[in-house]
Design a protein around this nucleic acid. Sequence first.
DNA 1: CATTGTGAAGGGCTTCACAGCT
DNA 2: AGCTGTGAAGCCCTTCACAATG
Lengths: 223, 223
Amino acid sequence: MANGKWKSDSQGAKGVPKAVVYRLSLYLRELQRLIRGGDTMASSGKLGKLLGLTDAQVRKDLAIFGQFGHPGVGYRCEDLVGAIKGILGTDREWTVAMIGAGNLGRALLGYRGFASQGFRVAAVFDADPAKIGQSLEGLVVEDVERLSEVVREREISLGLIAAPAEAAQEAATRLAAAGVVGILNFAPVTLHSLPVEVSQVSVDLATELEQLSFAVANRPETR
Amino acid sequence: MANGKWKSDSQGAKGVPKAVVYRLSLYLRELQRLIRGGDTMASSGKLGKLLGLTDAQVRKDLAIFGQFGHPGVGYRCEDLVGAIKGILGTDREWTVAMIGAGNLGRALLGYRGFASQGFRVAAVFDADPAKIGQSLEGLVVEDVERLSEVVREREISLGLIAAPAEAAQEAATRLAAAGVVGILNFAPVTLHSLPVEVSQVSVDLATELEQLSFAVANRPETR
DNA sequence: CATTGTGAAGGGCTTCACAGCT
DNA sequence: AGCTGTGAAGCCCTTCACAATG
């Protein structure tokens, strides 16, 4: 029986495998797609097949957080979406700042997928005087010197770094100092000296291509 | 003593943890930065500290592929860069096709980080007649209908999908049919029915933000 | 003598298999 | 009958600790 909240014997916070959290996002995405397609129930076997996972894996992942399924029938899609959003923390709106109004920053600003999952970009910053003052997707590009001020004014809680590698560390330091609680870093550098209370996730596009290159170079057997 | 090639008792292909391959990319990035900074040697402890890993982890990762270090002194940066590139398969140039000339596709085209790691974009495709024929970063946007033809002509081996979710599966199917060996997918969908010989890596930007949201919502202890 | 490479120990994640619920 | 939730087994990855080494 779905109970909508954390597992009753909850121990508060950690202990959740990173891989599980990642798959939670996949379940959420797939369930939303099934709902758009008119489905109302989904079994662990069905979800697993759609994502290339075993049914047991799907059930174990969900069981970490509570009992969301109904023996004999499966999971109610709407309920499970609600539960997963609650777990991921996307059942509320997050206010985000974009640092960097270059190619990547502008592209990410235009990406509708963020807004649809509850992430609202409320400010864009850049250090280039030629870009400051420009209007992008309804936002005026602000001077990165004003970051701290604007972050507080607009109650921004997450920072998204789409700046060049050389500028990324300073952007991160500024964000942390301004009180942001999380940083998503697209720059190809490791960020240092951030306070422990600032969470961090990194995506390096070149690294992803390298993973692909390795997979291709080492695939099972081909000419 | 560095030997430059695969571990002698090589079993050919798999058996390498995904996490190890990911860290290899991080080692490579950090080593290249150290070299730019003038360093010539790096120990496992130093590399580990720079990346937030233990020294043992660094050594174990590298030991999977051979003996690259020198007891008492560490690893020669240049040699290790060469070795890792060989392992990742980026010691050669990969020819890449971009599918989708929207915001994201254009941003990725302009990203210098790809070229610097050996990935050369040799074609851009889109299905929108308004975009076909436009010139971007020295390339003319081609009709996605001509994908197969162009992929063969230009000997393209990897495909990068930056198309909307609805178009991604068809793009992937076309790429596979055209003989591409790897696909990097930025669309928020799971790709199905690809031949096993086509490797696949996915990056979903909304998913990454959700990982951050979870990390923030579940961090150790904060007000 | 600082640092590597590695067997052994430890911990964590996945798969299996089945009791129990609808 | 169909499917969930879960203990137990199995496997994989990380950490530890130290002999080997230039």
